[in-house]
Design a protein around this nucleic acid. Structure first.
Length: 699
DNA sequence: ATAGGGTTAG
């Protein structure tokens, strides 16, 4: 059959026979033993333009393209077998033409009956199209399929080229795909849109943006598909500036109210932390699909605004929109973050009653929700019941044990994972090490750290070093913590590591080292209020009250505000938020009265306020009674007051670490009220029962 | 004739 080369191909043919080539070919390309040249110029290695990685040299203004031309050669041998020799390249420059011989062995990739072109059949894809599908996202096989397409005369067919190029992108070969697109005599909008989408979906966001620009410079029409894809690429890169430009472009071209485009832009803004804009877009979507709802819930959740995400879920119910499994995954994550156990259970009921298929995502979300809402055994029951478990599922469960101080369970599960689960990753080891730190399992932690490097080849990151230092520190092994830092940590330790050391100094009352470390931290990040608070804590503990004053004054002078603590309690599906000294709750008077009585009763039982916990408060009036009205005490008192006579545990979530005095007081409360009280603080769970806490003072 | 849309777990 006749071979009708594209202009790019023709240019190569005119170049004549390539010296040194081991194959012969003719201009018709109709015979066996031919070399088909897939040609273009200045793509890939020859054009290293930083602004437009995939631009053509002639449109590249940076001036560093177009000096040499690379040719990719496809060697084709006809007959019953198709043979592909690793692509060779020809470089043509002012110094002359050089030819590099193909390296490697001749590969017989697949057998094909013949090179006879066949007509397209809508019911049965042609052998050429089949060979594309068969090749899948593998660069080598695709090049071979490509050779076939050229020889059989389909190289101008846009469906073929589009399929080929999108598969090439999926194989990670974006430059090759770009070459295919630009060497086509008349590439269309669909082709570039498909490439943009493929690149955005296969972790090549930079290439996706480049394809979008190709479309722009080729003056081809845009479609909403292009925008959904390129918006995703920007979202993945957190490229808010490019993203905003694309947003504007989409409006100019009349896609401003397309729900797909709007949803993808919603995700863009939410991934860039601009939730206000995201919400505006969400509100602007008429007939919003389930995906928009899901994106909004997840957007809030990912940005730490789980309560807002839960509100959106409620709105969704009110709007009678039909949720899908992703809705539940996102909502369960929000529940996990907010500690909204009631809603989590409600979602679980829906999932079960609707006989929904429990995917790994949904299953992990359930495990995670129960673990982080303080019901570890339920988390484990789901974990055991799941059909499919992956590294995230295992890690969630291990982290769940760790958070509750069940270090041995965490280690046991980790060993089980090593035997019959997926290979652990970085996050798994954070969970394992932190479980060891919270349970005082120093030896096990050391083993895990060692095995992480030796067996799994994982390079420890800051968070692993922190966990190790934290572990030594909590166990009172400050010398070993310092030794570990100097022996194992490459480079200068960052503030995170020193914070861990400082926490240990505070816990074990090592004032000299503590002050030194705190001052180092303040020098490192003078604007961070938490270091000042830690320093003043250290001074307070060592009785140097004039130093406390000094730190306090520095903070006031620099306008540094300590992070405000709050506690949440969920009752009857609504969550109530308390801040220290909170007086805005409608039942304020009763709550304070109840708390007073409670304090009276626990004092009778032997409770003595731990005054040192209050010394870091900044304002005088905050000190007055601050200890009595810490947010966690208010929340617990409210919970007890509202459920007198009940036996269900009281559950409270605190955003910061629980303070020493509250910890003591709640232990007493659990005894005098004979109630189980569960408090989740920033780092872990505390299960109070019969005057004891599950953390065994280890936090 | 013909090749597709936006969202998920630690």
């Amino acid at each position: 059959m006749a071979f009708d080369p594209t202009p790019a191909e023709r240019g190569v043919y005119h170049g004549g026979r390539l010296k040194g080539a081991e194959c012969t070919w003719d201009a018709k390309g109709s015979r066996v033993d031919n070399v088909v040249v897939l040609a273009s110029r200045g793509v890939g290695a020859s054009c290293r333009c930083p602004t437009m990685p995939l631009c053509r040299p002639e449109t590249c203004s940076s001036g560093n393209g177009g000096e040499s031309t690379f040719l990719n050669l496809l060697f084709i041998k006809g007959g019953r077998e198709t043979m592909f020799i690793k692509s060779a390249s020809v470089s043509m420059s002012n110094e002359g033409t050089t030819y590099s011989r193909p390296k490697g062995n001749i590969q017989f990739l697949n057998s094909v009956p013949s090179f006879q072109p066949s007509g397209m059949d809508s019911h049965h894809p042609s052998p050429e199209y089949s060979s594309l599908l068969l090749a899948g996202p593998r660069a080598g096989a695709l090049k071979q399929a490509h050779a076939r397409i050229i020889v059989t005369g389909h190289s101008r067919s846009l469906p073929f080229i589009t399929k080929l190029a999108t598969l090439a992108v999926a194989a990670g070969a974006a430059p090759y795909a770009h070459l295919l697109a630009t060497s086509h005599p008349a590439p269309d909008s669909f082709l570039f849109s498909s490439l943009t989408r493929a690149a955005a979906h296969h972790g090549l966001p930079v290439a996706a943006i480049a394809f979008y620009r190709s479309l722009l410079s080729a003056a081809l029409p845009f479609s909403s598909f292009t925008f959904t894809a390129v918006a995703k690429a920007c979202a993945d890169l957190s490229a808010i500036r490019t993203g905003t430009a694309i947003h504007a472009h989409s409006i100019v071209l009349g896609f401003g109210s397309d729900r797909f485009v709007l949803t993808s832009l919603l995700v863009l803004y939410s991934k860039c932390g601009q939730l206000g804009v995201a919400r505006k877009l969400f509100d602007a979507i008429r007939d919003r699909g389930v995906v928009a709802w899901n994106a909004m819930i997840s957007g809030y959740e990912q940005n730490g605004l789980a309560e807002r995400g839960i509100e959106v879920y409620r709105e969704m119910q009110a709007a009678k929109a039909v949720p899908d499994s992703m809705t539940f995954v996102a909502t369960l994550s929000a529940c996990a973050q907010a500690g909204a156990l009631d809603l989590g259970r409600e979602v679980e009921k829906r999932i079960v009653s609707e006989r929904m298929d429990i995917s790994v995502f949904l299953g992990s979300a359930l495990v995670n929700m129960y673990a982080r809402c303080g019901v570890v055994d339920k988390a484990r029951r789901w974990f055991d019941a799941l059909q499919e478990r992956n590294v995230v599922t295992w890690t969630s469960m291990i982290a769940g044990y760790g958070m509750h101080g069940h270090g041995h369970e965490a280690i046991k599960l980790f060993h089980l994972m090593r035997r019959e689960g997926p290979p652990p990753n970085h996050v798994t080891f954070v969970a394992v090490l932190s479980a060891c730190a919270h349970a005082g399992l120093v030896m096990e932690g050391r083993d895990a750290f060692d095995c992480m490097k030796r067996i799994y080849g994982l390079v420890p990151r800051v968070e692993h070093y922190c966990s190790m230092v934290d572990m030594f520190g909590r166990a009172g092994l400050l010398d070993e913590a310092m030794q570990f830092i100097s022996d194992y940590m490459p480079g200068e330790p960052g503030p995170e590591v020193w914070t861990a050391v400082l926490g240990a100094c505070k816990m074990h009352k090592n004032f000299i080292l503590g002050v030194e470390v705190a001052e180092r931290l303040i020098a490192l990040e003078p604007e961070n209020p938490s270091y000042h608070v830690l320093l003043s804590n250290i001074y307070a503990l060592s009785g140097k009250m004039h130093h406390v004053e000094k730190v306090r004054n520095t903070m006031i002078k620099r306008r540094l505000k300590k992070q405000i603590g709050f506690s949440l309690i969920e009752l009857g599906g609504t969550s109530h938020l308390f801040r220290m000294g909170e007086k805005s709750h409608p039942q304020t008077t009763e709550i304070y009265q109840y708390l007073e009585e409670l304090i009276h009763r626990i004092s009778a039982a032997g409770y003595m306020p731990e005054t040192e916990s209050v010394l870091h408060e900044l304002e005088e009036e905050e000190r007055e009674g601050a200890l009595r009205y810490h947010s966690e005490k208010l929340a617990v008192a409210y919970g007890l007051m509202m459920s007198v006579g009940s036996t269900t545990p009281i559950r409270v979530i605190k955003n910061l670490r629980i303070c020493g005095d509250c910890h003591l007081a709640i232990k007493f409360m659990s005894a005098v009220e004979n109630r189980e009280i569960v408090v989740r603080d920033k780092h872990r769970f505390h299960h109070f029962k019969d005057g004891k806490c599950s953390c065994l003072e280890y936090w």
